[in-house]
């Protein structure tokens, strides 16, 4: 029984069957990659996991509890964090403030009216944030306006914001999309490091095969909304069905 169990999930957008009978089981403390050509339903599947979309049928269980019908913030409070395709950070805020928000969310829940307390008094949280920033090599940037940073830094900040909540499951939606080779390699190293240091399950949606094969323990290939195969990276590499899905009938 995996930490994340997706059973018979279907999702239709009008006449388009975006997901058809998707079954997926992500085992605890593994890196599970979901790959597939454009329009295969990868992002739709991810959105069903985080509460942005509700599947028409089927069930999504996380750590024994259903996530269906819950709001994104409730699902986050259950222990799922998400990294977006384009880094979603609080651009108007400083790097340190960006780190304080997930910490406060973790400590105080989805809403608390702490209007008179001073932010400066949260020394414990600040120390925790500094530790995390140090881990992603951003401690020197803590007072920077986060919108003015490079894309790679924004990505690292977003990951740090997710990780500081100590999620049980981290969902990554094309974490290296649009990155230069060097940045991609840095991201791979960062993710590997994260994996080594803590107990965390990751689910990665990715186009870049280099990333997938250097990180994943298991790979699911999606095509036209249905899982084609699920196997270890070694077996996926030469799989004829995968080649077919990516390169078309001719291959």
């Amino acid at each position: 029984m995996g930490i994340l169990e997706v059973k018979n999930v279907n999702k239709r957008f009008g006449g388009l069957q975006a997901l058809g009978d998707v079954n997926l089981s992500v085992a605890e403390n593994t890196v599970h990659a979901i790959i597939g050509p454009n329009g295969a339903g990868k992002s739709t599947l991810l959105n069903c996991l985080v509460g942005k979309l509700i599947p028409d049928t089927g069930s999504v269980m996380f750590a024994g509890q259903s996530v269906l019908g819950r709001k994104p913030y409730e699902i986050n409070q259950m222990g799922i964090s998400r990294v977006f395709q384009t880094p979603e950070i609080f651009g108007d805020l400083s790097v340190m403030e960006n780190m304080m928000i997930p910490l406060l969310a973790k400590r105080d829940g989805s809403f608390r009216m702490h209007a008179i307390e001073s932010l400066e008094d949260e020394r414990e949280l600040r120390a925790e944030a500094e530790k995390m920033l140090d881990e992603v090599n951003m401690l020197d940037k803590q007072d920077m306006h986060s919108a003015s940073m490079s894309r790679g830094d924004k990505r690292r900040l977003e990951m740090a914001m997710c990780l500081i909540q100590r999620p049980k499951l981290l969902l990554l939606d094309e974490p290296t999309a649009g990155m230069a080779r060097a940045d991609t390699n840095n991201t791979i190293d960062l993710l590997k490091e994260i994996k080594e240091k803590r107990d965390i399950t990751m689910c990665i949606i990715e186009h870049d095969m280099h990333v997938v094969f250097s990180l994943a323990d298991r790979i699911t290939v999606l095509a036209q909304g249905t899982p084609l195969v699920e196997d270890t990276p070694e077996n996926i590499k030469g799989h004829p069905k995968v080649k077919e899905a990516y390169l078309g009938e001719a291959a």
């Binding site: 994104p72 979603e88 609080f90 108007d92 403030e97 928000i101 969310a105 702490h114 001073s118």
Partner: peptide, 23 residues
Amino acid sequence: SPFGMMLRAVKSNQQRMNYTGLN
């Protein structure tokens, strides 16, 4: 206050806020 920072977060990025466990 932390509350004031949350309000600035609302203006900055509501999507990130919701996916960070905040309503």
